[in-house]
Simulated scan of single mutants.
Amino acid sequence: MMTVMVLCYTGPVTNQTPPPVLRFAPSPNGHLHLGHAYSALLNASIARELGGRLLLRIEDIDITRCRPDYERALREDLAWLGLEWDEPVRRQSEHFGDYARALDRLQALGVLYRSYASRKEIAMAIAGQEWQGDPDGAPLYPREALRAIDDPAQHGPQAAFTLRLDMERALELAPPLGWKEYRPDFTAAETVPAEPEKWGDVVLSRKEFPTSYHLAVVVDDALQGVSHVVRGRDMLHATAIHRLIQHLLALPEPAYHHHPLILGQEGEKLSKSIASKSLRALKAEGATPGDIRKLVGM
């Protein structure tokens, strides 16, 4: 008998509509920069205007790069900006069981499969071909070319594998999907059609990380009762994957707003990986919280 997992917000039952819930969810793998400051301040501002709550979530599924000292630093930086959030703070690394149960549910639906191919084997399978990429530019997984490698009969029980979403099967179980993309004041929205097929068979779990961002963010938002997702436009297209997973797991659909990004002097996206100047560095140079607000247009 199949056990159906139910993910839901389990707050008090009342006749009143619960207040909106927003979240700021950084990864503690480096120091926060102006882009983070803008997103955090915008979430706090919208939560205040809507009479809602702001959560802080630590997205630390990459336990090899995320560090406690970075988490302490980001808390200090957010407090310096004048932000407050509800406690307790959810750390993804403490909730791998929640993601495992979601994977079990997807497995029961028949929308997951094991991928044993290495990055080198994937690259060899598409070498010399004009191969379609996903919205982030990564090549779609060449499942047909790797069927022999991905045959579980060719591998022992200890072989490392990645769990991928069988996009074709998943789409058979879902109606046409979309989401409401709201203005910053959440008074008006347009419907954006979701096109998850553009992402191909996305990774939902791998040996070194028992969940992916796509799965964890959907599960976390549901369990925390997040009603309004406010994040950067670099995540706009990924919402198609999130809407599909929400449908498969029978989870609620939040209201979305994808805000403009804060760019560097050369028009580049700010990033920890390219050592964009951190809030800590700006503070050390004498910047005040008011200066940071002006720098990000608030």
Rank of each mutant, 00 (worst) to 15 (best):
C8R: 10
P12L: 01
N15H: 09
T17H: 01
N29C: 10
G30D: 10
A37W: 03
Y38W: 07
L41P: 07
L42I: 05
L42H: 04
N43T: 13
A44M: 03
S45I: 03
I46S: 04
A47C: 12
D62F: 00
I63E: 13
T64E: 15
R67G: 10
Y70K: 02
A79C: 09
L81C: 04
L81A: 15
R91G: 06
S93H: 04
G97L: 07
Y116P: 05
A123K: 03
A127C: 14
W131F: 14
D136P: 01
D136T: 08
E144K: 11
L146V: 14
R147L: 15
Q158R: 05
Q158D: 13
A160I: 03
T162M: 00
M167S: 03
E168Q: 13
E172C: 12
P176M: 02
R183M: 04
A188K: 12
E195G: 12
L204R: 00
F209P: 01
H214D: 15
H214C: 08
V219M: 08
H228S: 14
V230D: 08
G232Q: 10
A238Y: 01
T239Y: 04
I245R: 06
A250M: 02
H257T: 07
H258P: 09
I262E: 14
L263F: 05
K269M: 07
S271W: 01
S271H: 04
R280M: 14
A281S: 09
R293G: 14
V296G: 06
